[in-house]
Amino acid sequence: MWGRATAAAIPGFLLSAGVTGLVCWLLPGPWQSTLVPGVVAFFAVWMAAMAVAFQFRNGKRAWAWFGGGAVASLGALWLLQTLQWVR
């Protein structure tokens, strides 16, 4: 149980930040206009990640999926910024 809870708290937080950041950056218009809705959506996504974490069989699987998702989403954010596709 503690493995799944920590997977929801640490990589789940990063995954939620990455997914919310991607959605906010990819919407049309300046990213500043999506800041407040993005923060509100972030908490909803993080709470959903916390609920999903307890659906895994064990903590290792939760850490693997959430960790991989966090690396992928934050890597996509980094790549978009490096290629200057978003500002």
Rank of each mutant, 00 (worst) to 15 (best):
67 G>Y: 08
76 A>K: 04
53 A>G: 07
26 L>Q: 14
4 R>H: 05
17 A>K: 03
58 N>L: 03
60 K>A: 13
42 F>S: 01
54 F>C: 02
26 L>T: 12
22 L>Q: 04
3 G>V: 00
11 P>T: 03
64 A>G: 09
73 S>T: 14
2 W>Q: 07
19 V>C: 01
84 Q>R: 13
46 W>L: 06
54 F>I: 06
11 P>G: 09
77 L>D: 04
84 Q>T: 07
46 W>C: 02
48 A>E: 05
36 V>P: 03
55 Q>Y: 12
81 Q>A: 15
32 Q>Y: 12
61 R>S: 15
64 A>W: 13
85 W>Y: 08
37 P>E: 08
13 F>P: 00
66 F>H: 11
27 L>S: 12
82 T>E: 14
40 V>A: 15
59 G>Y: 10
78 W>M: 14
39 V>H: 07
24 C>P: 00
75 G>S: 08
82 T>N: 11
68 G>D: 03
24 C>L: 08
71 V>M: 13
73 S>P: 00
25 W>E: 13
50 M>P: 00
52 V>W: 12
33 S>G: 06
18 G>D: 03
28 P>S: 10
18 G>S: 01
16 S>N: 02
78 W>P: 02
52 V>L: 13
39 V>M: 15
27 L>Q: 14
81 Q>E: 11
32 Q>N: 12
31 W>E: 08
20 T>G: 01
41 A>Q: 09
60 K>W: 13
76 A>T: 14
10 I>D: 01
36 V>T: 10
80 L>Q: 05
33 S>T: 11
53 A>T: 02
18 G>M: 01
27 L>C: 09
34 T>N: 15
28 P>F: 10
74 L>T: 06
53 A>N: 02
49 A>I: 08
71 V>A: 15
67 G>L: 06
65 W>L: 14
87 R>D: 09
46 W>D: 01
45 V>L: 11
42 F>C: 01
33 S>A: 14
15 L>H: 02
83 L>A: 11
77 L>Y: 04
48 A>L: 12
49 A>F: 10
22 L>D: 00
71 V>L: 15
8 A>I: 03
45 V>A: 04
21 G>T: 00
87 R>H: 12
46 W>A: 05
37 P>Q: 11
38 G>P: 05
19 V>T: 02
40 V>Q: 12
23 V>C: 04
44 A>T: 11
77 L>W: 04
16 S>C: 03
16 S>D: 01
11 P>F: 02
50 M>I: 07
